[in-house]
Amino acid sequence: MQATSRLRAFAATAALLAASAIAHAQALPNVVILATGGTIAGAGASAINSATYAAAKVGVDKLIAGLPELAKVANVRGEQVFQVASESLTDDNLLTLAKRVSALAKQSDIDGIVITHGTDTLEETAFFLTLTVHTAKPIVVVGSMRPGTALSADGALNLYNAVNVAASKDAMGKGVLVTMNDEIQSGRDVSKSINIKTEAFKSQWGPLGMIVEGKNYWFRAPVKRHTMQSEFDIDTITALPPVEIAMGYEGVLSTAIDALGKSGIKALVHGGTGNGSVANRIVPNLQKVRADGVVVIRSSRVPDGFVLRNAEQPDDKYDWVVAHDLRPQKARILAMVAMTKTSDTKELQRIFWEY
């Protein structure tokens, strides 16, 4: 009789615990991690290999399993979208990823989305998502500068912070975010500034906030158009027009400009020196490229500052566009997206001011 009573009590306790676990899980936000590879999924030969390693080796399920703390933040599940080092991603990969993010964002049972990504082109993907995915739900792109096998690896905390931000209601409506080195950065503004330190991602305008022990602290909000305010929608984009970059430097020749101008591209970003300066000997070559129907966009290779229109070059006279504060690689992303709708230079200039 006593044994039967004990069994009943045990069963009742187990049922209560199960019900409590279910209620706890139901109360947590639902976050999907879309994995694309990169250093955050990398592995080195030993613990001292922080800069020498193979990227894109660890699958998303293993990344999640290695962070049991995530279970206290959100109901997390993962999808392996790609498994590549980010320098090898293509425009088609961008389209595939953005369309998957958009589809998940439309699901009522999804509260936030995290994308694990290699750091080499992380800023480009983050900006592309900023421009094309229509949602107020948090989208967070995250990577690491050291593989998980290294001493003082940064990936685990970066990923924990990313899930924490993606699960937070206070991150809604702030556009696509990047969480690295305890900072919350705007996906539009942030760029990789160094290749061997964990504080690699910076914005000249500063971070939006910080994450400390799982709590978000916000200090500013993005003012450029993004996500819900964007006139571009990934659900209507089927292909991206070809846009290339030609860099400026001392002694530059017109070789790259001439070749790219004949390659069938729709726009050419010139990554000039200083204020988007263009060497006098290649100005006629850029004018010819524009006369042949290719849009010329004047950017700068300088990390900070912005390009002033009709300074250094008479942009109105030449019918060129200036990239504002976007570095060449981000100017290329915006040009591709914008030119899915227009090739009119006045409209393109408006877009570069607003985004």
Rank of each mutant, 00 (worst) to 15 (best):
R327K: 10
T90D: 04
A15M: 03
A65L: 06
K346M: 08
A221L: 15
K197T: 14
A12N: 06
P284F: 05
V101R: 00
P303Q: 12
G155A: 00
K215C: 01
A136S: 06
A27I: 03
A166C: 03
Q185D: 05
G274F: 00
V76Y: 00
D189I: 07
N195W: 07
V269M: 03
E213V: 12
M172K: 11
W320T: 04
V212I: 15
G175C: 04
D61I: 11
P222G: 00
M228S: 10
Q204F: 04
G214P: 00
S88A: 09
V73Y: 13
P303S: 13
A279N: 08
L89K: 15
L16N: 06
A85M: 15
E87M: 07
V294T: 10
N275K: 13
V223S: 09
G118W: 04
L129D: 14
G173F: 01
R327M: 14
V296D: 02
G214Q: 00
P147K: 05
L208V: 06
K57T: 10
I265A: 03
Q26D: 05
T273N: 14
S5K: 09
T4F: 12
D182C: 09
V269F: 05
G305M: 01
T149L: 08
H226I: 04
A136E: 13
L16A: 10
T236G: 11
I237V: 00
A279F: 03
R188A: 09
T52P: 07
H270D: 01
L129G: 13
N280S: 09
G175E: 01
S20L: 08
